[in-house]
């Protein structure tokens, strides 16, 4: 079973994402900010990270930069999932090693379509 770390400061969003991803047969871990997420990744690298941008403590972009420096941190597929929906943010995410990008609001169809783009379904 593939693992996905869902990183979002909103419990509601984490729950929605968890439900969609569990239906797609992912095993889910959750983190409420970038720092928690980094700690989780140091414990065990997930196959994929679904990543919010704006979060307290450490935001999504800083987490991504840090993750890609970690040993094995180049492996996880990182999909941003954020309300930031302008070209600048998307470009910055891609330049820093994001694999895909979801603009909120999202639904199951979008998640599934993006997972198909990165070859995870």
């Amino acid at each position: 079973m593939r693992s996905c770390l869902v990183v979002d400061d909103s419990r509601v969003i984490r729950k929605v994402a968890r439900r969609i991803l569990e239906d797609l047969e992912f095993k889910i871990e959750e983190a409420a900010d970038g720092m928690e997420a980094l700690t989780a990744c140091r414990g065990q690298m997930p196959d994929m990270v679904l990543l919010d941008w704006n979060m307290p403590v450490m935001n999504g972009l800083d987490f991504l930069k840090a993750l890609r420096q970690e040993p094995g941190g180049d492996k996880p597929v990182v999909i941003f999932c954020t309300t930031e929906n302008d070209l600048d943010h998307i470009t910055q995410a891609l330049e820093n090693g994001a694999n895909e990008y979801i603009m909120k609001p999202f639904d199951g169809d979008i998640i599934e379509a993006k997972l198909a783009e990165v070859g995870l379904v």
């Binding site: 929906n85 302008d86 070209l87 998307i90 470009t91 891609l94 895909e100 990008y101 979801i102 603009m103 999202f106 169809d109 979008i110 379509a113 993006k114 783009e117």
Partner: peptide, 20 residues
């Protein structure tokens, strides 16, 4: 719409071929 460009289109193509 934002919804339409997220179905089937890789984000790299969105960046390359679309204006907001």
């Amino acid at each position: 719409s934002q919804f339409e460009v997220q179905r089937g289109l890789p984000v790299t193509s969105l960046v390359k071929y679309f204006d907001k």
